[in-house]
Design a binder for these strands. Structure first.
Lengths: 156, 156
DNA sequence: TTATATGCAAACAATTTGCATCCTG
DNA sequence: CAGGATGCAAATTGTTTGCATATAA
């Protein structure tokens, strides 16, 4: 599945969306792709500055947003840094979150939790909670997304 | 399982950990437990002020931390509001996160993703990503946790 | 050339903290 | 009445934005 996009690489994806290729962007992509595991904005800046001292933190953030938009990067943690709380539920449940309007739908998936427990046991972890968040667009917001993508097709 | 704790209620849990019961804490617990769904700190403050106008936002935060510690509340979103990124993996994977030392272990659970996709379809969602984070303590940190709990037993 | 990207500094927003005061146990 | 809890304001911290300048296409 989908080997073609992969062959393109970031540069191709940039062009396809009418985004420019700058040394800063190249560098940030490189750092993230070379690195096993996850990095935060500060860590990326630190590594990048070794090779490009003038780089600014805002460029890192702007580039990360772009990479997320191009689906080149996966984000760990909540996009909005606002914490939400709910009374500890009797039944664990999971969340379906709309990135468009922020709507949250709860659902249950007991089977998943079993699997998770097994995995945790394998690693000797003592699990105190889990967070299963499916991110995407609800039917209403999905339409707007389509418009948004169309606007960026290489048609001009 | 575990009906006994439930019978105690928040007040009992507070006492068991040597925490004081104040009207502010009572109120905040009440608000969260009465509310279906999730609330953030501001929303809690807003509702609480209707009945207790002098309440401050920092008390809300401090109380939320306490409730989390007592496991009376579940948190949606990342505890640290620092976003982390990783190169978009070919295989989706999930994270096992140690709340003690921050260690992150990646694992795969393809079966879960199928289940999630089904759920998403049921709700008409267009999924763009998922976040499965199991939170707990790794073997090393779990020990320290035990100490921590012992220190709070009503033994003095 | 010309709109897009960048760097810098200032602005923001969520959360945390210091400290004097209050109040539970 | 002693130490934990609160309220207030100021400090932190992660992230975003405005704007003049630099630069990819």
């Amino acid at each position: 599945m989908g080997m073609s996009e992969k062959g393109l690489g970031p540069v191709g994806l940039f062009r396809a969306k009418g985004k420019r290729i700058t040394p800063q962007r190249r560098l940030i992509v490189e750092i993230i792709q070379e690195h096993e595991g996850h990095l935060d904005a500060d860590e990326i800046l630190l590594r990048a500055k070794a090779r490009y001292p003038r780089l600014s933190l805002s460029t890192v953030y702007r580039t990360l947003d772009l990479l997320r938009e191009l689906d080149l990067v996966k984000e760990l943690g909540l996009a909005t840094y606002r914490r939400h709380y709910e009374a500890k539920p009797n039944e664990e449940h999971q969340h379906l979150i709309c990135l468009g309007c922020g709507k949250v739908i709860e659902f249950q998936c007991a089977h998943c939790l079993d699997i998770h427990q097994n995995l945790a046991d394998q690693h000797g972890f003592e699990i105190t909670g889990s967070r299963v968040e499916l991110l995407g667009y609800c039917p209403q917001c999905a339409e707007k997304e389509v418009d948004h993508v169309h606007r960026h097709l290489p048609s001009e």
